[in-house]
Amino acid sequence: MSTRAASAIRHPDEVVCAVRGLTKTYPAVRGRRGTPATPEVRATDGVELDIRRGEIFGLLGPNGAGKSTLVRQMTGLMRPDAGTVEILGHDIVRHPERAARILAYLGQESTALDELTVSLAAETTGRLRGLDVRQARRERDAVLDELGLTPLAGRTLRKLSGGQRRLACFASVLVGERPLLVLDEPTTGMDPVARRAVWSAVDRRRAEQGTTVLLVTHNVIEAETVLDRVAVLDRGRVIACDTPAGLKEQVAGEVRVELVWRERAPLDVPEVAALRERAVESGRRWTLRLAPDEARAVVATVTGGAAFAALDDFTLATPSLEDVYLALGGAARQGLVRA
């Protein structure tokens, strides 16, 4: 993906969006028949962020980390309990209605557009973003063409595949230019062609208009390839924030070893039994994070002797952002995806 090319046009000194001490607590819910009680949850807990002009800034974390809650507060959809959000000089907590005039938001749901044709969804959204009919139609045609959606223009969103529907929603986000795009998992379900269309459309706007992008994702590979900077979220807190390369350097001394056993781990082999407490188990798969020489010893053990008979597959890999998340104390053992 070619987003690296655009990083030259970043404006490192200009802060587009400043978040300070943002906190939101969902109150405890008393249990009723059929619904268990839930304790008080801090969905965002003192979040501080600076997003600079022209960058693709990512929020990475497993499901339930508070990414969507944070984004909803930053787009004026939800009032925080405390803290401030300033976007391009406007106080969004005090004037939530201004958010709609500064940013375009792609949420996870498409229900508002589902029964419209691709073309009408884009045109209507443009009109509701303040364009007149002629402008809205012109921009609609340009965006559908840019994203390769013109052949689908007359189809209803509901009749499209998940990835195509997502792309159509993304198209409606682009009609009516905005300096900040907030995209909540935009590429879910998309094939590689559609993904490329999304990222090149984003790149073009960054290069031509200095557009800033706030991206929510739980996809580690996507985070590593498209983001300029990433904030790692865990249980409502930002546990790290840097470039993907910078974050990975923090765990550079590590190697990830994945072992997949045929049926179950040969615990009768003492070396394997000793490894068990350091492994994260997921069915037949063990994931270990080890120093390079330890990793070599483990590979030697499992590829020889009795353990090898029980081994189905193994991989050695350099650390990913997922390892960063876990090394920084991320609580969820699963929830980040590599796709």
Partner: peptide
């Protein structure tokens, strides 16, 4: 959310 994030 779709309508709420448009200046309508």
């Amino acid at each position: 959310d779709h309508y709420a994030t448009l200046p309508v």
